[in-house]
Measured scan of single mutants.
Amino acid sequence: KLATQLLVDLAEGCHTHHFNSLLDIIEKVMARSLSPPPELEERDVAAYSASLEDVKTAVLGLLVILQTKLYTLPASHATRVYEMLVSHIQLHYKHSYTLPIASSIRLQAFDFLLLLRADSLHRLGLPNKDGVVRFSPYCVCDYMEPERGSEKKTSGPLSPPTGPPGPAPAGPAVRLGSVPYSLLFRVLLQCLKQESDWKVLKLVLGRLPESLRYKVLIFTSPCSVDQLCSALCSMLSGPKTLERLRGAPEGFSRTDLHLAVVPVLTALISYHNYLDKTKQREMVYCLEQGLIHRCASQCVVALSICSVEMPDIIIKALPVLVVKLTHISATASMAVPLLEFLSTLARLPHLYRNFAAEQYASVFAISLPYTNPSKFNQYIVCLAHHVIAMWFIRCRLPFRKDFVPFITKGLRSNVLLSFDDTPEKDSFRARSTSLNERPKSLRIARPPKQGLNNSPPVKEFKESSAAEAFRCRSISVSEHVVRSRIQTSLTSASLGSADENSVAQADDSLKN
């Protein structure tokens, strides 16, 4: 292990032709098999893994070397290190390495390699500790012929580059190093199909959405987006994914797998022009299946994007999809995704031109529960009313008269009656009930004795009459309010007539 670390330190600071010789020695160290011998017992696995620490030291050392060589000349050094790393990870899946030390190597290698970024000039870069990406002036992410390196360097940008540029090249004859992302992409596909350690798979799935944002990485080298989509959909639809995973937390289920895969599918929607129609349908189907899991909100957001990006695919699945959405409970976490999906859909009339009455009724059935102001915040309630109004205007004229009683009944049950079921009123009724029952229970537990009763009969009569009056008032709060309003209006009217009579009498006395 110490000798391997010494080789790594020497290679990191070497800029001459001896660098390749040092890498040859490190490569021989990495070539050791990580498969346990067949006769190895389970209690000896930890000791055997400790004997392979030099392999881990070599791989982690290459990660440090690549981070240094990416910004220094010659660029061919970075290319050689990158290829060695990718080849080593491929061996893991070729020979099915399952030892804990092998999983640790893959975890740290993917953690580093999935941080690679590219700008519009195809320059590769890595983020620093502050998250700012520094791009290399010597390494690009696409394949290029050595003699055409300078031509590639002087080509115009596709868009303004992001991030601070690296140091300027030493001279005009500098050759750019090619670090094609397709090599890593193929290893990522192998990981999605064969990885057995949940920690490694979770890391890859968590980092892929951010990497897919940099389309330069994908399009400048032959990366098959179709295969990526197929691998992701197979993970969700195939039963073998959960069987092969180990190291998963207790209670791990298909729902947890959906939570990890759906963000990658959402990021892949922007590549729909490069996906086969069959793959697009598979993607939409997987998102529909996710509606029954805890990732339902993410799936609804993804389907909203699909309705804009892939209208030809979503239009066929939309009638059944809208009916499925009615089975989702009206909760605060689902309110905004569902209502925004319906609001977006209302502005795309070509998608729902074939809707029948059942689909329009489903839209109103989804939106009406969110009009309850005692359960949802003001934004959700306003958005629900907006969706109902928009869809009522957009639905066909023959359907409107049939939906009017349905909508008014839903609004009455969710908006008007919600004020009668407020917690304050319920607590008031509970308190009044307890007050009504309390005197009775006290009389049963403690019967009054005439000799020891010091309270006069008049006081008892007053208290009983007050309790009886309170019971009468607490029967119905709404009736009490109505009666008080009527009494107030009658009182004001009587006072007004009394004032008029007094004024008339005063005038008569003055005349006399």
Rank of each mutant, 00 (worst) to 15 (best):
L212I: 04
L62C: 07
V200A: 00
G247F: 08
K56P: 05
L205C: 03
L203G: 08
S234I: 06
T220R: 03
G251E: 08
W198D: 00
S221R: 02
A248P: 06
W198P: 03
S76L: 07
V216S: 09
L158K: 13
R106F: 00
P127W: 03
E145R: 07
C233I: 10
A75Q: 06
A78K: 01
G238F: 06
V64W: 06
S230E: 12
T241Y: 10
V132L: 09
L85Y: 00
G163H: 11
E53V: 07
V133E: 04
L212A: 01
P161E: 14
A58H: 00
S178R: 10
Y138A: 04
F135T: 04
I105Y: 01
M144D: 08
E243T: 09
G163C: 11
A50S: 08
R117S: 05
S178A: 14
R175K: 12
A75Y: 06
L245S: 02
G149M: 10
S150Q: 12
V200T: 04
K215I: 01
F135M: 05
P165L: 10
K94M: 08
G131C: 04
L208W: 01
S178P: 04
L158Q: 14
D130R: 07
Y71G: 03
K199S: 14
A50M: 10
R186H: 11
C223A: 03
S120N: 06
E147Q: 09
V59R: 00
V140Q: 04
A50V: 07
P165K: 15
G61R: 01
E250G: 07
Y181D: 02
G251W: 04
N128P: 03
L63T: 12
L212N: 00
V59A: 12
Y82S: 01
L228D: 00
P164F: 10
R106A: 00
C141A: 05
Y93C: 00
V187D: 02
L184N: 02
H92W: 00
S182H: 10
L91W: 06
L91Q: 13
V187G: 04
G131A: 05
D130A: 11
A168T: 14
L99Y: 03
L201P: 00
A231Q: 14
S76P: 04
S49Y: 05
V132N: 10
G238K: 08
L158R: 08
A75K: 03
P100W: 01
C191D: 01
G163K: 08
G238I: 06
D197A: 03
A248C: 12
L115F: 08
C229N: 02
T57V: 10
E83W: 06
D54I: 01
F219V: 08
I65E: 01
T57Q: 10
R207E: 02
D226Y: 02
C141E: 02
G177H: 15
Q194C: 11
S104G: 10
I65P: 01
F135N: 03
R186C: 08
T220H: 04
E250N: 11
H77R: 03
T162C: 13
S224T: 04
P165D: 04
K94W: 06
S96M: 09
L52I: 06
E210P: 02
S224G: 05
A75R: 03
V59H: 02
G125E: 02
E53T: 05
K69A: 03
K94H: 11
L66Q: 01
G149F: 09
S211A: 12
G247M: 07
I218A: 04
P249A: 05
V132G: 10
